[in-house]
Write a protein that binds this DNA or RNA. Structure first.
Lengths: 265, 265
DNA sequence: ACCTGAACACCGTTCAAGT
DNA sequence: ACCTGAACACCGTTCAAGT
């Protein structure tokens, strides 16, 4: 479905900044791993992950699919690259004036808040890409949980240690924090996708969804208006605050009773 | 890769209980939506999601791929069925003597603990299937977050209301609980997959992973032994307990100050 | 050096045909 | 009624060939 034979839209990538455009030779060719990755992200954002094929991505770049293999070993590696690009975009301050670099200037609590908001921002900016973050095998599998961005893990651990967390507490904090972030954002992003796919994919059986007989589910029926409300942003802030409170408590308790009864080794 | 031409293993489904096996006619044919779904789950567990194709699933069942379309509208629908089957397996007590039915007998706290353990059990039993739970579009998209099992949402809401939670508090609890559960289990399951894929997919470049130069990541290097420890089970219990404490606090606060300053509407 | 054409082995899915 | 064969449009990927 959704044929687009009538309209050639091979200029999605033309939405670049413009500095290299004046060079003169970067228009149709100038293939490049980074350009391919950016095009892939744009394509996934526009058409969904399932729609991204090597052939279509090639066409989008004005080239045959086979040309991509000069710069990318294969489709799986391409997806890894997409995830890495999106995650790393946290660090190159792309025009965000406020929460500039993710340094640990304002203390660990401020850092965790800024990091959470940063990750949420990229998740909402690329809702169709974000699930990949959770499903791709990690860069360093021995890190539990593995987050694919070692740079982010490193930055996290540094902040917590600077903030006075013991080694064990820093690692425990990393785990609690990353599972909170992943869980919340994945659900939020799935919601976005669900709303879209209702108007998009099934093409007209939106009532088939509503006709799910809720007769057997009185509480669900009853609470539908509350359940349907989108409180994601508020809940995100509340959960984040709660997590910070918990971590702060752990830190203070450890300071008062100055023995290491946390874990062995 | 991983050719298995030498061994015909079309009897994966033969691991059924045995009552209908005595009927005599269920051996090679007897195709059936439920049988197909069970075979699909077994296949994903054994070979991963990416390896599941209609053709291979057909072969597994001793049939051409095209025969499956009599019982399943297509691959996407098949995957939905797989998710639903796995999630609903929570409710048919499949030989678990202890945490029997998910009724709200022991109060809502006991219920939440049993539900969490039940979901964790099926996640760990089908680690390759579980990510689908998070990525498939939900049955009722207007439920936020959408969990694909309306029965589970209904059961959850009933328990909380019985426990004295207001409508708003019950819905808020549902959201906090489901995002905790999803986040934790997804990370845990990803870890499992990462360990497996190291020995499985790349076929010998396990050192390529370790050779990721950690020189630029001093904290990571430093904390490697702690980060590599699998404390999933403990962390799961702790996070769950913490969530329950929080919910209990909310409930009591609401009882003491008997006004509804929670939300508007 | 960089891209293409043709080819290979595989997909999901349809449908007329077999039994 | 239930399954198959052949076919269609599409995949990812390889590789010799073009420029």
């Amino acid at each position: 479905m959704a044929r687009t034979d009538d309209k050639r839209d091979a200029d999605v990538v033309a939405v670049t900044e413009g500095p290299a455009a004046a060079a003169g030779l970067t228009r149709p060719a100038g293939l490049d791993r980074e350009r391919i990755l950016r095009a892939a992200i744009a394509y996934i954002d526009a058409h969904g992950l399932a729609a991204l094929t090597m052939r279509r991505l090639g066409a989008q770049l004005g080239v045959e699919a086979m040309a991509l293999y000069r710069y990318v070993p294969g489709r799986e590696d391409l997806l890894d690259g997409v995830v890495d690009t999106v995650v790393e975009s946290l660090f190159d301050d792309d025009g965000r004036p406020d929460d500039i670099h993710l340094e640990h200037a304002g203390g660990w609590q401020d850092y965790l808040v800024r990091l959470a908001h940063g990750v949420r921002r990229i998740a909402l900016a690329h809702p169709a890409v974000f699930p990949l973050v959770a499903s791709r095998p990690p860069a360093a599998p021995w890190v539990r949980p593995p987050l694919r961005s070692l740079r982010m893990v490193e930055s996290f651990l540094a902040s917590m240690r600077e903030g006075g967390f013991s080694d064990q507490a820093a690692v425990a904090a990393y785990r609690a924090y990353s599972s909170f972030l992943l869980g919340h954002l994945l659900l939020e992003v799935t919601q976005l996708g669900a709303q879209v796919s209702l108007l998009d994919l099934p093409e007209g059986d939106a009532d088939a969804q509503r006709s799910t007989d809720l007769g057997r589910y009185p509480h669900l029926t009853d609470l539908e208006p509350l359940l349907a409300r989108d409180e994601s942003a508020v809940e995100f802030e509340e959960s984040l605050e709660n997590l910070l409170d918990r971590l702060t408590r752990v830190l203070h308790e450890a300071r008062n009773s100055e023995d290491g009864a946390v874990l062995d080794r």
